[in-house]
């Protein structure tokens, strides 16, 4: 059985170099515009930086993947097509995308370009994955973060393509690509603009000892002193339901499936993915090293001896997400 391929995020050239040095097998990044799902200020790659990044990866035997995984907007699809064409021209090993029209365009224009189906496509069952494989020539699918281990065990061996699973980092509780909460409040969303809960909409305030968190005018959390606040997304917020204050969607926590790598490898998962293109190089360096180490231990059948990464996690807490018993 071959070792799990470690797929690492890079929001900047510095983070990319850190990922390569720390043992990434593949690195993924996006261009500096709304064509990818981490369209944050100060992040992502110009065409020149992308060219250098891809060359750097190749010099070190690392694959470079370009994410073009937001949804092209009506009348402006050319921007997304150009991103795919440039990724191809610059020698990217794969393009990660989510939109059907864009995938069909890419396939007809660049038949040999390797296409990976982004988690944003929310292909959450074998029939949907078969559709994308047959009709859009997808070679790998990034599985939505909503499967239990049981689901993965039955799904992966039956797939006609490679599968990639998120194992560490931020966690969407909603089905990726099927969530418009952010645009409902801010006008900007992952599908439309590649952003969720844009930073310029976040407003912190005080109510007595409590820290209040608003997105625009909408109060989404009240945090008591001493509690750690995660990045304020609507799905992790605190609201009143049935007269009680609660987090009806999800607690702020980061995904950590490192202890599950042997099982993922055994069922035939090809690659494991780290979320976090918005993270700095120090974070990327530490997490990539830990995940690569865990992947090697899993391949050698050794028990996991992973460093404690909890200080890097949202709210300082880890979750196995949908793989945890009773999550659904």
């Amino acid at each position: 059985m071959s070792r799990l391929e470690v797929v690492c995020p890079a929001g900047t050239p510095a983070a990319l170099e850190a990922a390569v040095a720390a043992g990434a097998d593949s690195v993924y990044f996006g261009f500096r515009d709304g064509t990818n799902a981490r369209n944050f200020p100060g992040l992502n790659f110009s065409r020149e930086e992308a060219e250098e990044a891809i060359a750097h990866c190749h010099r070190h035997g690392v694959r470079a993947m370009v994410a073009v995984n937001s949804y092209p907007q009506a009348g402006r699809a050319e921007l997304w097509q150009r991103a795919v064409a440039d990724a191809h021209a610059l020698g990217a090993d794969a393009v990660i995308l989510a939109d059907l029209g864009l995938a069909r365009w890419a396939r007809s224009r660049f038949p040999h370009l390797r296409l990976h189906l982004s988690v944003q496509a929310s292909a959450a069952n074998p029939e949907a994955i078969a559709y994308w494989t047959e009709r859009a020539g997808i070679r790998r699918v990034v599985l939505p973060r909503l499967f239990s281990m049981e689901d993965i065990r039955t799904l992966v061996p039956a797939l006609p393509v490679e599968s990639e699973v998120f194992v560490f980092g931020g966690l969407c509780v909603m089905a990726e690509g099927r969530c418009m909460l952010s645009s409902y409040v801010t006008g900007r969303s992952p599908n439309l603009d590649g952003v969720c809960s844009p930073a310029e909409w976040v407003r912190y305030g005080r109510e007595g000892p409590m820290l209040t968190v608003r997105l625009g005018d909408v109060l989404i959390d009240r945090i008591p002193p001493g509690d750690k606040a995660g990045y304020p997304t609507l799905c992790k917020g605190c609201y009143r339901v049935r007269g009680r204050a609660m987090r009806p969607f999800e607690e702020p926590a980061s995904l950590d499936l490192l202890s599950r790598l042997p099982e993922l490898m055994a069922v035939g998962v090809r690659a494991i993915k780290i979320e976090g293109r918005q993270r700095g190089r120090a974070y990327v360096e530490r997490v990539v090293r830990a995940v690569r180490g865990a992947a090697e231990q899993a391949a050698r059948g050794r028990p996991l001896d992973a460093p404690d990464l909890r200080t890097l996690m949202e709210g300082g807490r880890a979750t196995e997400g949908a793989l945890a018993r009773g999550w659904r």
């Binding site: 699809a77 029209g101 864009l102």
Partner: peptide, 10 residues
């Protein structure tokens, strides 16, 4: 998700 003309056309 249908956001642009090409997806609609397909």
């Amino acid at each position: 998700n249908v956001y642009h003309e090409a997806t609609l056309a397909v």
